[in-house]
Design a protein around this nucleic acid. Structure first.
Lengths: 323, 323
DNA sequence: CTGTTAGCGCCTTCAT
DNA sequence: ATGAAGGCGCTAACAG
């Protein structure tokens, strides 16, 4: 089942078989047919490992995510996978759960030549140990861009998007706008908070930090907000799931959304359109985020000399019923 | 940066370096230290590809999922990844979107020796093209077990679980119990429907098929059910998300759950506990499903002669508020 | 157009 | 305890 058995049964050299395998046009049609027949006869399956070793190209991309369950991530990954497939690449998906041991284990595949490059969607940049592990392998950060690193990035302008969300709330007449934020180690969390604060200016502010980006955490965060002596009349949550949780709490308390309290989300995941009421949110171009990440990474792989770029994609304010 | 540079700077042979790398005890401590120092000095990173080729073991497992967004899958995958990590294995996750081209592309990595085995969570068994691609590589089906194939499987008893769900509904006094099913190409869909029909016996029956296992599809399916001349007073949905969608529709129509219509789910994903009301459901041992799949697969990889096993795990009826 | 040859980087007998 | 040598399966010059 190795290439030279095929060569022998076809009566040619291994080089010729290899040429046929790789679609090299410089092969006489007759011999090509002979080889093809031999391949079929031997039920030959190329050993990709050997090919990868020889060409020092695995055509595999590592994708590091903290939590695949997050629908935002899932959609970005879909974009990544689709674009990678177009270029004949495969995806090695690592669901790190933000565990260092796991991340570093996967990152070792980079130096080990098992993958040609890496796309990170986690806050890698604040883990010095990991960045040294990446060394100067092709790397792009997706959805989280720290220009301080030797990596390209594809993101939206989180500051402006957050500010726009607050502006929209203010335009609708809300005065006491609170923020439900997530883990501040993420640059995007910092940026969105900065955008929130800038847009609020000297007006009323309240920020609360959720344990995760998920629904349940949103319920708790909202509860916390409503222990304040003067609770908010509008809430801007940093993820749609968080916003969903916030509405859940509001309903539990008998508050109407948006009459008693407005709720605004972030991300634009499908879930937002099935909540009661449907969620007004900032939509990120999830698919495109993934697609561009792959394109940038592939450019880098093909030519390590190309400069790193920090690409900013457009977001969109989607008005539904919750504001 | 290859092994023989290390060997030269340490003044030993490549064999010795290899021994140190692999923790072979038959190395004098002194020489071992020398080698270790050389490794550090050279910033040596072993080429995993070469090692894999030489040992014909990649320590990578392919996991084929139709849709990672599905929280049931995500949780199983988490179990898979955790167990794999324990044994020094990595996961190559393929989100196939049930697209044949993508599945076959990934499966080619199996014959190409890039992965040592595969865990499928998709209805692979009804795609003859794919099963031949798998050939007789180590394979276990997870959550979906077709004993007709040369693969082990880890599942629950879908027939009994579905029947128990219906029995519970009947015990609570509901008479007109409908089923929201999914894609019948999946064996579990067939089995759950069979369980439903068996438990209903000669009583009222109505089955409707949703386009996917997701929320939105549940809304539609429920709507369809309520076009019936005599709509159901209870609904058993084949996934929790579907059940959530069903409740959504009920609320829209001003129906109370469970007073006007009871709703029961399947899977036991976290989402079910945040719905209004919280979902009564059949809980699958998601984590364990993943863990056992890996264990079975690894046994198979270590010893291809072991017999295939069809393992059945326990499920649990979780009563919350929707029934 | 096709064959010969030389590795890719590593592990692993077989000697010593 | 260590070294020498062969080869995993493939591709890529270089000849012819």
């Amino acid at each position: 089942m190795s290439i030279d058995k095929v060569a022998r049964t076809a009566g040619v050299s291994t080089a010729t078989v290899s040429r046929v395998l790789n679609g090299n046009p410089a092969v006489k049609p007759d011999t090509r047919d002979k080889v093809l027949a031999a391949i079929k006869a031997c039920e030959y399956q190329p050993n990709l490992l050997a090919r990868q070793l020889r060409t020092s190209r695995s055509r595999m991309l590592l994708v590091l995510v903290s939590n695949i369950t997050n629908p935002f991530c899932a959609r970005v990954v879909r974009g990544i996978e689709e674009e990678a497939e177009k270029h004949g690449y495969h995806i090695l998906l690592c669901n790190s759960e933000s565990r260092l041991t796991r991340e570093s284990a996967y990152l070792r595949l980079l130096s080990g030549k098992v993958v040609d490059g890496v796309i990170t969607m986690d806050a890698i940049s604040c883990l010095p140990g990991l960045t040294t592990l990446i060394g100067d392998s092709p790397w792009v950060q997706c959805g989280e861009g720290d220009p301080g690193y030797r990596a390209s990035s594809v993101t939206i302008d989180n500051f402006k998007a957050a500010a726009a969300a607050v502006d929209h709330l203010a335009t609708c007449g809300y005065k006491r706008i609170a923020l439900i934020n997530g883990d501040l180690r993420y640059l995007y969390s910092q940026q969105r908070e900065a955008g929130y604060r800038a847009a609020c200016g000297k007006n009323w502010q309240a920020v609360v930090y959720a344990d995760s980006l998920e629904y349940q955490a949103g319920v708790q965060a909202m509860a916390e907000l409503f222990t304040l002596p003067e609770p908010p009349d509008a809430v801007f949550a940093i993820s749609d799931a968080l916003a969903g949780g916030a509405m859940h709490y509001a309903h539990e308390q008998g508050l109407r959304v948006p009459e008693d309290v407005a709720v605004m989300g972030f991300d634009g995941v499908p879930f937002g359109s099935v909540t009661f009421p449907p969620l007004t949110t900032i939509e990120q171009p999830m698919h495109q985020l993934g697609v561009r990440s792959v394109q940038l990474l592939l450019e880098r792989i093909d030519n390590p000399e190309v400069e790193t770029v920090n690409e900013i994609l457009d977001w969109k304010l989607v008005v539904r019923g919750s504001v």
